[in-house]
């Protein structure tokens, strides 16, 4: 039996692939190639700083979309997207009564892609409130708050409140009529609390009406105070999912 065909040698594609992925710089970043064995795939998850929040294996019901509708993950995705667009907005925005409105107006008109970033930030903020509410409904109707996940449900309720507060504090920042009056209505609601209402409202807006003090307070809470708190509670929330044995599933 004669061999008529010779094995094909490496082509141009193989050459480019080899140069791209088998070089000193690439392998200094990614220590191994594409994980194509179960062992390497587990290692890829367990050893990556970004992926190690996951377990290496999960029950097969958990990858069904209808089990979670990705709602918790989407809420976190919105948080990340809001962080990125929020940082970009901070480049242009000065939280003073003199500048705030014109800075936002300039974002709409003078800054390239400024309007897009602002739109993204606003729509994602609304979306986050919605996904967090839907996530809570999903967890409730699936009985996923039951023992041993009681405390994680409580952390989730705290995160819901933080999400609403983040959205509420951001609402004032454009310093337009919509912002001013929505926050006036909102803080009046807080001010109606029995006994301490007036004091709470005063602390919240730094005065008797929504003005420069309220703007700087809301800005500080919006860009650092509340996101930091939310990040802490989110870490606990995600950690507890794994500590409590992963997502809830039938016994």
């Amino acid at each position: 039996m004669s061999v008529s065909e010779q094995p094909k040698g490496p082509g141009l594609g193989d050459f480019i692939y080899d140069k791209l992925f088998h070089n000193y710089i690439w392998s200094s970043i990614f220590r191994s190639g594409y994980p194509n064995t179960p062992r390497n795939q587990m290692l890829a998850v367990a050893t990556s700083v970004f992926l190690h929040l996951h377990p290496t294996r999960i029950h097969k019901t958990h990858v069904k979309i209808t089990h979670t509708y990705c709602l918790g993950g989407l809420s976190f995705f919105m948080f990340l997207g809001l962080t990125v667009t929020g940082v970009m907005l901070m480049f242009y925005y000065v939280p003073s009564v003199d500048r705030a409105y014109s800075d936002v107006a300039a974002l709409n008109t003078n800054v390239r892609f400024g309007m897009l970033i602002r739109n993204l930030h606003r729509w994602m903020a609304h979306a986050m409130v919605i996904t967090v509410l839907l996530h809570m409904m999903r967890v409730f109707y699936m009985g996923a708050y039951k023992p041993p996940r009681e405390f994680n449900w409580v952390v989730g309720v705290i995160l819901l409140v933080l999400t609403l507060l983040l959205s509420f504090t951001g609402y004032l920042l454009p310093w337009d009529q919509l912002a001013l009056w929505a926050i006036t209505v909102g803080t009046n609601i807080a001010g109606s609390a029995p006994v301490l209402g007036g004091q709470v409202r005063f602390v919240l807006i730094g005065g008797f009406e929504v003005g420069p003090e309220a703007l700087i307070r809301f800005y500080t809470l919006h860009v650092i105070g509340l996101p930091l708190l939310a990040a802490i509670f989110m870490s606990v929330h995600f950690w507890r999912i794994r500590r409590d044995g992963g997502l809830a599933r039938p016994l």
């Binding site: 994980p35 179960p38 795939q41 587990m42 890829a44 998850v45 992926l51 996951h54 377990p55 290496t56 294996r57 999960i58 029950h59 097969k60 958990h62 990858v63 979309i65 990705c70």
Partner: peptide, 11 residues
């Protein structure tokens, strides 16, 4: 059980 990579990470 399934492996998180690729079954979850890709979703």
């Amino acid at each position: 059980e399934l492996l998180v990579w690729p079954d979850l990470v890709f979703i």
